[in-house]
Computed example of a mutant assay.
Amino acid sequence: MKTTSIRIYLFVAVLLTSLYACNSEDNPTIATCLLTSTTDQLVEQSGQLTDELKRTFTYTSSTLTSLAEKSTSKEAAFQVEYANSQVIRATSGQDVVALAYGTGTRPSSSTFSRGGATMSTFAMDYDASGRMTKITEDRQVLPANSLTKQRAFTFTYDADGNLTNERVRFTLTDGSVVEQETEYTFDAKPSPYKRFSELSLLTAVALSQAVETRPSRFWHINAPISLKSYNLTSTGTRSNLRESSTFAPVYDSDNKLMNQDQNALLYQASVPTPVTKKNRQTFTYSCM
Rank of each mutant, 00 (worst) to 15 (best):
T148K: 02
V14T: 11
D252H: 07
S108I: 09
R131P: 00
M1H: 09
S234R: 12
E181C: 05
G175H: 02
Q260R: 10
Q79R: 02
L147I: 12
R131I: 00
T133A: 06
R151D: 12
L19P: 07
A77H: 03
E183W: 03
T58G: 01
L241W: 06
E166I: 05
T105G: 13
A83I: 05
T65I: 06
M288T: 15
A98T: 09
T58E: 08
N279M: 02
T164D: 08
L16V: 07
T105F: 12
T50F: 04
Q41T: 12
Q268A: 08
Q45G: 12
T72M: 11
Q260M: 15
E243D: 03
A77K: 05
T56N: 05
E137C: 02
S244G: 00
D254T: 13
E44C: 08
P224A: 06
A21L: 11
T284D: 15
L16K: 01
G116K: 15
L241M: 06
T4A: 15
E179A: 15
D40F: 01
T63S: 13
A188T: 15
Q48N: 11
I6A: 15
A77V: 06
A264E: 10
A204C: 11
S176V: 09
E212W: 06
S73I: 03
Q180K: 12
S61D: 13
S229Q: 09
D261R: 12
S37D: 07
T185E: 08
V211F: 13
L16I: 08
N84R: 11
K149P: 07
